[in-house]
């Protein structure tokens, strides 16, 4: 957090405002979205569906059935699903990459910049600081997902005809329902990333080197996905935080299958509780030296 945010927090406290942490959260989010790095990451994410749409448009060839990610082959008839295709491509790597950067940087970044000390001198409890840092990371998860979905939907409308969309079940839905499904997909993917954010927050309390925390978080998300693809470990799969990431496809069936939505939410909540508690255990008595 930069020094102006610290002064903002300090001033809000000195003015005697009822301090419930909203001011701190607001300043944390505004700091996050004032960073050039945040916007660069969102721009790269938005580029994913835009590049897909341009590539499909320029080559003008309909991808063969069975090749490429699901829904890519119907993009030429219906541009609305470009956002969904973009999200499906971004889930395994691009989204965890950016979330790992934000979550891994949350505490370690302050420590390495030497601002953590000042933050804690202001009457901000360590617990509240952790919660605010986590909520800011969660807001970034939503922003990152929406960057892909909204950019994809807009470029799809610009480059391709807009019409009814075909679901995995072969049923066809109209334009309003397509937009609702895209929104549901965004919600699902945002929830999917919350567990990873909690892990990143915990790792971030372990070190003063933000790059290390970012890398460790991203590596964990890859390791989890690799473990998830090894059938001999199927007893472990329901416990991996990446297990339901591609279950987002269940929202694109007719009727919607909510099973993986529920399982995913419970699993991510468990990760948030566990790693939130771990982060508290580590951070509440951590010696802040920098």
């Amino acid at each position: 957090m930069s020094s102006d945010a610290v002064s903002e927090v300090a001033s809000s406290v000195s003015r005697g405002r009822p301090s419930v942490g909203w001011a701190l959260l607001g300043s944390e989010i505004s700091v996050l979205f004032r960073r050039r790095r945040t916007w660069a990451m969102l721009a790269v994410l938005a580029l994913v569906p835009i590049l897909i749409a341009i590539a499909v448009r320029v080559t003008r060839s309909t991808p063969n059935g069975g090749r490429g990610p699901a829904f890519l082959d119907q993009v030429t008839q219906n541009g609305l699903f470009v956002g969904v295709v973009g999200v499906l491509i971004s889930i395994p790597l691009f989204l965890p990459l950016t979330v790992g950067v934000v979550a891994g940087d949350s505490i370690a970044g302050e420590a390495s910049a030497g601002t953590l000390r000042y933050l804690l001198i202001a009457p901000v409890g360590r617990v509240r600081l952790l919660i605010v840092k986590y909520l800011a990371a969660a807001v970034f998860c939503l922003a990152a997902t929406l960057a892909v979905v909204v950019a994809g939907t807009l470029i799809g409308i610009a480059l391709f005809p807009v019409g009814p969309a075909t679901l995995l079940s072969g049923d066809v839905i109209g334009v309003p329902e397509t937009l609702i499904r895209s929104l549901l997909v965004s919600v699902y993917v945002t929830i999917s990333l919350l567990g990873l954010s909690a892990i990143g927050l915990f790792i971030s309390t372990l070190t003063d080197v933000p790059v290390g925390a970012m890398a460790a978080t991203i590596v964990l998300s890859v390791v989890s996905q690799v473990l998830d693809s090894i059938p001999q470990l199927d007893w472990l799969h329901p416990w991996l935080f990446t297990h339901y990431w591609l279950g987002v496809g269940d929202l694109l069936r007719q009727p919607i299958s909510w099973d993986s939505f529920g399982s995913n939410s419970v699993l991510q909540a468990a990760y948030i509780v566990l790693f939130g508690a771990l982060a508290y255990g580590r951070f509440s008595t951590k010696d802040v030296l920098s």
């Binding site: 468990a270 566990l274 939130g276 508690a277 508290y280 255990g281």
Partner: peptide, 17 residues
Amino acid sequence: NRLVLRWVPTALATAVI
């Protein structure tokens, strides 16, 4: 005492899960 207390939430979270 503080060292023990700080891990109570972790133990609780693990137990609940």
